[in-house]
Each structure stands twice: as structure tokens, then as C-alpha cells.
Design a protein around this nucleic acid. Sequence first.
DNA 1: ACATTAAGTGATT
DNA 2: AATCACTTAATGT
Length: 214
Amino acid sequence: MNQRERTLLEENYGYLFEPELLNEIVESGIIKQKRQGDVIIEVGEEIRFMILLVNGSIKIMREDQEGDEMLLFFLEKGDTCTMSLSGCLGKTQSEIRAIAEQDATLLMIPVQKMAEWMKQYTGWMNFVFTSYHERLHEMLQSIDSLVFLNLHERLFNYLKDKVKLHHTTTLSVKHHEIAKDLHTSRVVISRVLKQLEKEGKIELHRNRIEVKEF
DNA sequence: ACATTAAGTGATT
DNA sequence: AATCACTTAATGT
């Protein structure tokens, strides 16, 4: 781990972790760079590392046997993938797929360290519990959105999420990509997007959506 | 100029 | 809200 990476780590996690714990993380953690669109964890893949997102963003997808998939939620920097936390309970296979939403910097920690650090560092224990809580909360939100919102609202929330994540109101997405994330068809997305445009909330272009209201 | 890919739309279920 | 069938528009070669 180089100096720049260490600085990133301290910026994002310094206030959570004891200095000794930070040192341990620097020692046993591996930094990995991922490009936008790279698959980080595949469904069924055995989890050997716990993953902290140091920079960038990740989208977490659920997939069924037929290959139908749907977006569960996004992870931002400072977040951790909870699926990778469950690795500390023994050998587990991933039930989700994680894809880099933007170029991302990951800190991968061997799962064996999990149990060790849980006993040793309260900062670590708090972090793990807090992370579980946050992910559970996001999962519930995702269920709420799916059950209680119509597609119109769901789509607009999705766009607003992207704006926040990418820190820009100019989104480079194709309608069919949105359709995949929300698990519907491209035609339906195009129609609802047109509706949002008429309402003045967005502006449509080829391969690009300008979000006017968020 | 032609082919390919993205997006728009009416009709039907 | 999904699917089909077709059109129009933007881009790549």
C-alpha cells in the first residue's frame, strides 16, 4: 500500500478505527483498482475477502437462476459490502453480484482477520455492526420502493440516486441499461422517461439524460 | 452511402 | 406494464 492509498484510507476510516487497527489494515489489506463496469463479486463466488469501498461506487444486483437481474442498491465510498462481511461466519458464497458503477478503489481484507479484529478492536466491532445496520436499512428501502412506488416514482428516484452518486446532473446512460437495473423493458422506460421530460424534470438526449430537478 | 444502435410510438393484451 | 412491430434519429465505418 502506497502513501496515497494510506491517506485515502485514513480520510475515509480514520475516525472509526484505532491507530493500531489502521496499521493492521495497511499491513494485511490489499488495494485493488476496478474500472467502471468491472464485476467485483459474482453470484456463487466464494467470499475470501471483506471489501471496503475506498473510492468510487458499486451497484449491488440480485440475480435469479434464469439470469434475470435487478438493482438492489448502490454503495458509495466509505461503505462496505455486507455480503463480504458474512464471510466471517465461515465459507460462504455470494448471493449477489457487485459491479463497479464508477471506477472504484477497493480495500480487500482477508476474512480470517475479521474474527481476530472483532475481539481486539471495539472500533472494528462497531464498524461491522453499523455496516450491517446500514445495509439492512437500504435493503428495506429497496423493498419499499419496489412494493409501494409505481415505476414513475421508482425511475425518478433511480435517476436522483445516480445524480448523487456521480456528482453530476448529466447522466450517461442508455434506456435499456436503466430497464435492466429496474427489471423492466426498454420500451416502458422510454415511455416513462418521456413523461418525466414533459413534466420538466429531465431532458432526454441520445446516451444522455439531463436531470433538471432533484 | 450504408449498417448499426438508440430511442419514440401506436396498437394489443 | 409488457410485448410486438415499426419508425425515426444519431453514430460508426
